[in-house]
């Protein structure tokens, strides 16, 4: 009975939050003050405020997790773990600190933990659904709809994603945040807890490795044609 009541309360809170979220202007959602208020309320035990935090950040968290882990289910599990960890350590968050930077650092750490659990290599294959979605997206693009070309493109993209997964964890995190999530070098450094110079070095090394993979692909493509 208590569980049912709790579930209903969560659903009601979700409806309320969704409505409230839509009423808020986008600028206020992105502002640091927005998170400052919500974090203060969540620390006081306000679950609705915590759900608002999730609503405002979940897409970015899931996106980072998916790019880091390359798997939809792992991304979902990692995102859950991230928010549970955020709730657990909300008391340690210092007022005035960048909440999103703190959140993304937790996300990266959780993804590292997941990759470590999966195996030392960190190589995880993107699941077939995501792969087909990507292929469908490419199909609608400027490329030809020739089945043979599509298959080659799919192979190309899969290899590039595999290349990303095969990078060392720190380089992969730096590259995902900088090139795929569009963070500035300073933001990446803050999220990773390192210096901008280190981030530049990691990003440069990661780009060189990805380029090497792409060169191999180009050579294969040229040989196939």
């Amino acid at each position: 009975m208590e569980v049912v009541k709790g579930t209903m309360a969560v659903e009601m809170a979700h409806i309320f939050l969704t409505d409230a979220q839509e009423m808020l202007p986008p600028a206020s959602v992105e502002s640091a003050d927005y998170f400052t208020v919500l974090v203060a309320r969540a620390r006081a035990g306000d679950e609705i405020a915590f759900e608002r935090i999730m609503l405002a950040t979940e897409q970015r968290v899931v996106s980072i997790a998916w790019r880091m882990l390359g798997n939809r289910d792992d991304a979902r599990d990692a995102a859950q773990d991230v928010y549970l960890r955020v709730f657990k350590y909300l008391g340690r968050f210092r007022a005035g600190e960048d909440f999103r930077g703190w959140l993304y650092r937790i996300t990266i750490n959780v993804c590292h933990d997941f990759a470590r659990k999966k195996g030392a290599t960190g190589l995880t294959q993107f699941d077939q659904i995501d792969f087909m979605q990507e292929s469908a997206a490419l199909e609608t693009g400027s490329r030809s709809a020739d089945p043979e070309s599509l298959a080659l493109q799919e192979q190309q993209l899969a290899l590039i994603r595999s290349a990303l997964q095969s990078l060392p964890p720190k380089e992969r995190a730096a590259l995902v945040l900088r090139d795929l999530e569009g963070f500035s070098t300073e933001e990446v450094a803050h999220a990773l807890g390192s210096r901008p110079v280190t981030v530049r070095s990691q990003v440069s090394s990661a780009r060189a490795k990805i380029k090497t993979y792409c060169d191999k692909l180009s050579r294969r493509k040229g040989a196939a044609q």
Binding site: V62, R76, I160, I210
Partner: peptide, 27 residues
């Protein structure tokens, strides 16, 4: 290669149910 990487790792649409499931589980 950078544009290829961006293309290959474009984040798919997960859908509202996917996010709601995460929130439900966490709360």
């Amino acid at each position: 290669s950078r544009s290829l990487l961006t293309e290959a790792c474009a984040s798919p649409e997960f859908g509202a149910e996917f996010y709601a499931g995460i929130r439900h589980a966490v709360l």
